[in-house]
C-alpha cells in the first residue's frame, strides 16, 4: 500500500465528505506545514532552531492550495463543479474514494487502540490530530478529552522531533488566533 505524504493524510482527515474544511484555514495551514516538515526531518533529530519560522513561512505560502493540488494530481481528490441556487458557480474537492479517509486515519487509530505500536509517522499524526482537535474524525468510541490526552501521550513518547514540532504547531495556532492581522 502506497502511503500518502503526512500532510496529505492530514488534509483528508481535516475535511468532511463534501470537501468542506472542519477547522479554520489558518489553524489548518499551520498543521499542514508542520506535517510537511515532520515528513522531511530524520527520526531522532531535534527540530531545527528555525522550525518555527519555517512553519510560519510555509503556512503563509499557500500550503493549503498546494496540498490540495497534490491530492488532485494523485487522484485522491476530484473537483466537483456545481452552481449555488443555479447561479453562483463553485468547485468542491471531494474524495474520489471514501476508503482514503479510512486509510488516512488507520495508523492513528491502530496506535490509539493499541493494535500495534505507533511508528514515527503515525505518532506525528496523532499529535497533530490532537492539537487540531480532529479527534472526532477518528470515529473511536471514547470521550474526547480522554482520546486527546491519549493522542498527546503517543506523540510525546515517540521521541524527537515529533513532540517538539507538535508543540511548536500548537503554539503557532494559538498565536494565529490572537494575531492582529491574518
Amino acid at each position: 500500500m502506497n502511503r500518502l505524504p503526512l500532510h496529505h493524510d492530514l488534509y483528508v482527515l481535516a475535511h468532511d465528505q463534501a470537501g468542506r474544511p472542519l477547522i479554520h484555514q489558518s489553524s489548518l495551514a499551520l498543521g499542514l506545514a508542520g506535517a510537511a516538515l515532520l515528513d522531511r526531518l530524520p527520526a531522532g533529530s531535534d527540530p531545527p532552531p528555525e522550525a518555527r519560522s519555517l512553519i510560519k513561512q510555509v503556512a503563509a505560502n499557500a500550503v493549503y492550495e498546494r496540498t490540495r493540488r497534490g491530492l488532485l494530481d494523485t487522484g485522491v481528490l476530484v473537483g466537483v463543479r456545481g452552481r449555488r441556487m443555479g447561479m453562483l458557480p463553485y468547485t468542491r474537492y471531494e474524495l474520489a474514494d471514501i476508503a482514503s479517509a479510512v486509510r488516512a486515519s488507520s495508523g492513528v487509530r491502530s496506535a490509539v487502540e493499541g493494535w500495534k505500536p505507533a511508528d514515527a509517522r503515525s505518532a506525528g499524526l496523532c499529535g497533530l490530530v490532537a492539537v487540531l482537535r480532529l479527534e472526532a474524525e477518528l470515529y473511536l468510541d471514547e470521550p474526547a478529552a480522554r482520546l486527546v490526552s491519549r493522542l498527546r501521550q503517543i506523540a510525546a513518547t515517540a521521541g524527537p522531533p515529533i513532540g517538539g514540532l507538535v508543540a511548536i504547531v500548537e503554539t503557532l495556532i494559538a498565536e494565529a488566533a490572537v494575531a492582529v492581522y491574518r
Partner: peptide
C-alpha cells in the same frame, strides 16, 4: 539546510507579505 528543506517542499524562500 533550511533553504534546501524549503525547496524540497516545492516552496521558494519568500518572505511573508
Amino acid at each position: 539546510r533550511t533553504q534546501q528543506n524549503i525547496e524540497q517542499f516545492g516552496y521558494r524562500q519568500e518572505l511573508r507579505r
